[in-house]
């Protein structure tokens, strides 16, 4: 009886143990990679500050993300509005009469005679004379006596 029972158990056991199936190379590769990554992750998370950050990031919810996006958009809008306002201001500045550029007075406040027609005329004449001073024959010496050779001789 006992022998029969033993044989039945053995048969049952043989029937229940699934047949040994060899894993495919891809699965082996996947397992190896995930194991490797898992090890790295564990090691990285073991570092105290990273661990804390990880915990914090895990706490971020959709609400948080929404708040940040809306905040950024609001700042961008304010920036754009300010920029437009400033550009308009510059355009308004350009409307003023241009400052005379012929002789800008730098560092000093112009007097009421700065645009006086007589003074400007004298100034223009003075510039002309300044140019004439540079082009006189005395300076240019275009007509200085040329050095001609008059001593012609064939003596050794």
């Amino acid at each position: 009886m006992e022998t029969k029972q033993n044989n039945k158990v053995t048969e049952n056991l043989e029937q229940k143990v699934p047949p040994v199936v060899k894993p495919s190379p891809i699965e082996v590769f996947k397992k190896t990679i995930s194991g490797f990554l898992g090890t790295i992750k564990t090691k990285i998370l073991a570092v105290p500050p990273i661990n804390k950050i990880y915990v914090l990031l895990k706490k971020i919810t959709k609400k948080h993300v929404r708040t940040v996006v809306f905040g950024f958009a609001a700042i961008l809008l304010v920036f754009i509005i300010l920029r437009v306002l400033l550009v308009n201001q510059v355009v308004r500045l350009n409307v003023f009469d241009p400052v005379p550029v012929d002789k800008p007075i730098t560092g000093h406040k112009p007097s009421i005679y700065a645009t006086d027609p007589v003074i400007l005329e004298i100034e223009s004449k003075s510039i002309e004379i300044g140019e004439a001073l540079d082009s006189v024959e005395l300076k240019k010496a275009e007509l200085r006596e040329p050095g001609y050779d008059f001593e012609i001789d064939f003596d050794k």
Partner: peptide, 25 residues
């Protein structure tokens, strides 16, 4: 004559200074 011209160049310099002074408050 060069000395005479130098004096005139000085005059030219003085004119520039005078005009600048008149045009400045």
């Amino acid at each position: 004559l060069e000395l005479a011209l130098t004096s005139l160049e000085k005059v030219d310099g003085y004119f520039k200074e005078i005009l600048q002074e008149i045009k400045t408050a």
